[in-house]
Simulated assay, not measured.
Amino acid sequence: MADLPQGYRLLDGPPPVDEYLALRRAAGLTPPSRAQAVAALPGSWSACHVLHEPTGLAAGMGRVLGDGGWYFHIVDMAVLPAHQRRGLGDAILTVLLDRIRRQAPPGAFVNLLADPPGRGLYARHGFTETAPHSLGMAMTLR
């Protein structure tokens, strides 16, 4: 497991739904509806979160969506602003990537969408920009 500062513990699985929603909101990520969160969290290929032991609440999280063989998409990387710059995001990403390395066949494709605050973290872990060869595209269903 990853090294964390005193007072933090890494737990397997996503945080509870209410904490998941609060983490996304506080970290500046678009919060899904409660119904979306309830449906999404059990669909994770892998997930982990960091518990802040003094409060008993999740301070950070990350998930992987994937098919177990070829594609793995890192999502929901978030750390509460009051807990940033302590290595929590690095620990979460390390755990998720280690799981992929252990369980995925060679040649698996791992990707993510990188907002500006996380780009340095992702680059330190070996992620590179794909443009201009490929460009991320998105659509939100209404």
Rank of each mutant, 00 (worst) to 15 (best):
M1K: 11
M1P: 14
A2P: 15
G7N: 14
Y8P: 08
L10W: 08
L11N: 14
P14H: 15
P16W: 02
V17P: 05
V17G: 03
Y20W: 06
L23W: 04
L23S: 05
L23G: 04
L23Q: 02
R25I: 00
A27C: 07
P31K: 03
P32I: 01
S33A: 08
Q36V: 09
A39I: 01
A40G: 06
A40P: 02
L41Y: 00
G43R: 15
G43D: 06
W45T: 07
W45S: 07
C48E: 10
C48S: 14
H49P: 11
L51P: 13
L51Q: 13
P54F: 13
L57C: 15
V64N: 11
G69V: 07
H73K: 05
V75H: 02
M77V: 15
A78H: 03
L80P: 02
L80K: 11
H83F: 05
L88R: 10
L88F: 10
D90R: 08
A91M: 10
L93T: 06
L96N: 14
L96R: 13
R101D: 14
Q103A: 13
Q103N: 12
A104C: 07
A104L: 04
A108R: 05
A114R: 07
A114N: 03
A114T: 04
P117E: 05
P117Q: 04
R119L: 00
G126I: 01
F127D: 02
E129R: 07
T130A: 15
T130G: 08
P132N: 09
S134V: 15
S134E: 11
S134K: 10
G136F: 05
M137W: 00
M139K: 14
T140I: 11
L141H: 07
L141M: 11
